[in-house]
């Protein structure tokens, strides 16, 4: 499993990188890669999200924060520095043609990584995402083209949470959010965080989603 950390990068540049990488892949190659990134502030809306999920649109406009539609599942979320984006490029044909299982894998990796970092994270039966108590700490939204994956998951690590008040996370006005920083009371070293997630993902994809 290759790993590429794009660092702090605009959302659309990271999406372009994913698309270019996907188009360059050959059928059946072993080019699975975990792409990681952080983004400057931006609101992203999935394919079936509408403007009603961004009640604080004016707040974003006043601060010059873009609200953009994205070709992925999931609804609305907010990205900013300190939030870890996981964008795996995985050939599901070579493992299992099961998108639900793939999202399970993402959530399992996030849950285990956060626990390793000391955060009491858990999945909740019947819901998507990863939670700490009743607060959501990680969000999933994927796209699959020709069984190659795009987009993935966002995990709140050190990012500020105030701007989440201006959206309905995942389209649900009742969802409260948290971060690893808020749960632990300290800033985490993002390089250590990324190492943990990369190692866990490489292990979990073979355990939970079938090896090559």
């Amino acid at each position: 499993m290759r790993v590429r950390d794009l660092g702090l990068i605009e959302f659309q540049e990271a999406e372009d990188f994913q698309l270019c990488y996907m188009k360059g892949r050959l059928p059946g190659d072993a080019g699975d890669m975990l792409i990681m990134a952080e983004h400057p502030p931006v609101v992203t809306l999935g394919r079936i999200a509408d403007a009603s999920t961004v009640p604080g649109l004016c707040s974003f406009e006043q601060q010059g924060i873009s609200v953009i539609k994205v070709a992925r599942g999931g609804k609305t979320t907010f990205h900013s520095p300190g939030q870890l984006l996981l964008y795996p490029s995985i050939d599901l044909k070579a493992r299992a043609k099961d998108i639900s299982l793939y999202i399970d894998l993402l959530e399992i990796t996030i849950e285990k990584s956060l626990r390793e970092l000391g955060v009491n994270a858990a999945r909740i039966s019947g819901t998507r995402g990863v939670w700490v108590g009743m607060k959501k700490i990680a969000f999933t939204g994927v796209s699959v083209k020709r069984w190659l994956t795009l987009h993935g998951a966002a995990v709140n690590i050190n990012n500020e949470l105030d701007m989440f008040r201006n959206i309905h996370p995942c389209g649900d006005p009742g969802i409260k959010v948290t971060s690893a920083r808020q749960e632990l009371g300290v800033l985490l070293d993002m390089s250590i965080v990324k190492d943990v997630f990369a190692r866990r993902f490489a292990e979990d994809i073979d355990i939970h989603y079938g090896g090559h």
Partner: peptide, 8 residues
């Protein structure tokens, strides 16, 4: 598109 995934 489903709740969390878009696919062709």
């Amino acid at each position: 598109v489903t709740d969390k995934a878009s696919f062709d």
